[in-house]
Nucleic acid binder design. Structure first.
Ligand SMILES: [Mn+2]
Ligand SMILES: [Mn+2]
Ligand SMILES: [Zn+2]
Ligand SMILES: [Zn+2]
Lengths: 155, 155
DNA sequence: ATATTATTGAAAGTGATTTTCAATAATAAG
DNA sequence: CTTATTATTGAAAATCACTTTCAATAATAT
């Protein structure tokens, strides 16, 4: 599965060097999997995907690596209400812009949307400024999710 | 702890009658606890609070009751990133308005804020309408949280 | 009073995630 | 090129919030 369609070194390589972490095979493989999917994979799903090609990489390492990647800011970790955490590259060569999620509460489908992000960003900016002033709370990130029924689940 | 400061029957009583559920002692006690706290309690915290006065109410019942209350719409269930779910009355006699949360990623403090809710509501309305049109996704609820550092945690 | 149904709690089970720890790989030092 | 130092790994065991099971009890209907 981990198909490589670039030629140069991947964008995360310098991040590892700067941080002083070793860019090992399991780490590369996991990043490749995340680069080449549109889905929001769970740790176990990632493990199963890479296990077919690299049967020696353990589930523990997948969990540990994902934690590391989240800490480094390369990956976002989400809770979409099924019991497992789900992961997504925080940036990418293509199409991976800042976006939020629609979550179908019936079938679990996740839809990325980037619409209204601009107006949203403006409101968020004002809100964050106001919160900073009123509560002296320094916002570093936000989470916005919409729950409801997807196209197919409204009978 | 479950102090009662009203005289008439609590607002959730008709909700139980309408739904055909029995308003038993454990359920009343749990609702009282939630009415009289400003915090966002976990199931176990609720259990420990009521256990001092009602040692016969089990943790299982607390979990089950909270599930029921969430299903009935009387209680909101949140994930603030510590591993346990946290609960909050969805409405109340006083001060419990629609609000969102600031989460300090260092100390875990949760701050309710209602500021900017109006402008926010307007944006959400437009966003939901747009999402409905573009993805035919019917929004039923949303989640907005800000993460960052609280007053005391910015050294 | 008796049958029916809802609620409860102790104990056992679940399942995603973590921890432990000894083995191995990568880098630094000599 | 050794050898010491440090980082990374994976199997197995542990954790821990939450769920399930099931027999007992309480509430309501007949
Ligand atoms: Mn996404
Ligand atoms: Mn709140
Ligand atoms: Zn759906
Ligand atoms: Zn803080």
């Amino acid at each position: 599965m981990p198909r490589c369609r670039r030629m140069g070194p991947p964008w995360w390589e310098p991040r590892f060097r700067e941080a002083g972490f070793r860019l090992t095979m399991p780490r590369q493989v996991i990043l490749e999997v995340l680069s080449n999917t549109e889905e929001h994979l769970s740790a176990e799903e990632i493990y199963l995907l890479i296990h077919k090609v690299y049967p020696n990489i353990g589930l523990t390492t997948v969990y540990r690596t994902l934690d590391l990647l989240v800490d480094m800011g390369l990956v976002f970790k989400f809770d979409f209400g099924d019991k497992r955490a789900r992961y997504e590259l925080s940036q990418g060569p293509a199409s991976k812009k800042h976006h939020h999620h629609l979550i179908c509460t019936k079938c679990g489908r996740i839809i990325d949307y980037t619409d209204f992000i601009d107006e949203e960003r403006e409101l968020l900016q004002r809100t964050e400024a106001g919160l900073s002033e009123k509560y002296n709370f320094k916002v570093t990130s936000h989470l916005i999710q919409f729950y409801g029924l997807c196209d197919e689940c409204q009978e």
